[in-house]
Structures are given as structure tokens and as C-alpha cells.
Amino acid sequence: MNFFPIYCPNCRIPLPYQMYNTSGPANCPSCKNPVKAEIFPALFKETQSSAGDETMLLENEPGCFFHPQKRAVVPCALCGRFLCSLCDVEFGGRHVCPLCLAAGKKKKKIRDLETHRVLYDDIALALAIVPVIFIWVTVITAPMSLYVAIRHWKSPSSIIPRTKLRFVLAILLSGVQTTGWLFLFGWLISRA
């Protein structure tokens, strides 16, 4: 059992169990602030023992790809390798092997393993809007915004679904700025 004391987030004093799962907030005995502590059954879950992993392979039984002496319990949902209970990683409702898991994270093929994304649409839009206050800077930033918007049009954006509106706005705004600069330079050259 890996029991953890539930403590008040405000004063960090462990809360008595009488305060768990009350219908509304109850006052903390230490800081007197209202506290709502919602406890779930996972708190009492025993750590899985590894006894099942020790099951040895019998004749005509499928063996684990990584541990040939152990009995396979499930195939990998991505590569199909047979896995013992030690190698089986249950992830997002699928059973995958550690190699596929590592490859999925590295190649960003498994969305649920991603922990970081760059928002190119926000960058393109910021490059199209913010430098406008400095006017002259847009000579550089407008083409940069156009490049980022076109180059990363198909790059994954936020994990929360969003439209391409930011890219469209960035292209429109930076397009107007770039065109303006081109006209200005053209006019200056024609005068010279």
C-alpha cells in the first residue's frame, strides 16, 4: 500500500479522514479555510505483484519475443510481437511493446505520448501583428511570417483541435505588408 496523506493545499497540514468526500467544502482544522477533498478508489489500490510474470513457457505455447522463456499473454497492437505480462504496456486501451512505445514517442506517432508542441500558427500571427508597432521591422518579419505560415501549414498545431484561421490571418496580414514594401521599393527604384 502506497498510502499518501491528503493534506490541505493551503496550509499543507494532513486532513483528517472525516473530511474526505464530504458533500460540500468543510473547514480545514488548521487554517479554517474551506476544503474539498475528493478521494477515489485508486488511493487504496494495492501495487500489482509480478508473480504472473514468472510463468514459464510450456511446450507448444507461444513465448514472449523479448523473454523467450516466458509465456506470451498478448500481441503488440502495433508490431504484432508476442509479449509477456512484463513487456506488455497497456496504453490508451491498446497493448504495445516497449520498442513501439519508444519509437512512437520519438517519431511523435502516438499522440497520447506527446508532451510538447510548437504553435506555428500563433508564431506566424504574432510575426504578422506585433512588429507593426515598429513599422520598419515588418520588412523582415512579414516575409518571415509568410514563410512560417506556408512552411508549417501542415505541421500539427495544438493538441486541442483548432482551425487554420490563424494561418489564414497571418498570410493575409503579412501578404499585405510584403506587398506594401514591394510597391515602396519599386517606386523608389523607378524614381532613381
Binding site: 491528503i6 493551503n10 477533498a37 478521494i39
Partner: peptide, 13 residues
């Protein structure tokens, strides 16, 4: 969801 053991919220001043 299967791993969440508790969620605790406390009012502050």
C-alpha cells in the same frame, strides 16, 4: 482517470 487518487481544493485568503 484510472490513476487519479484524489483531487483536493482549498479556499485561500
Amino acid at each position: 482517470y484510472k490513476d487519479i487518487q484524489a483531487i483536493v481544493a482549498s479556499g485561500t485568503s
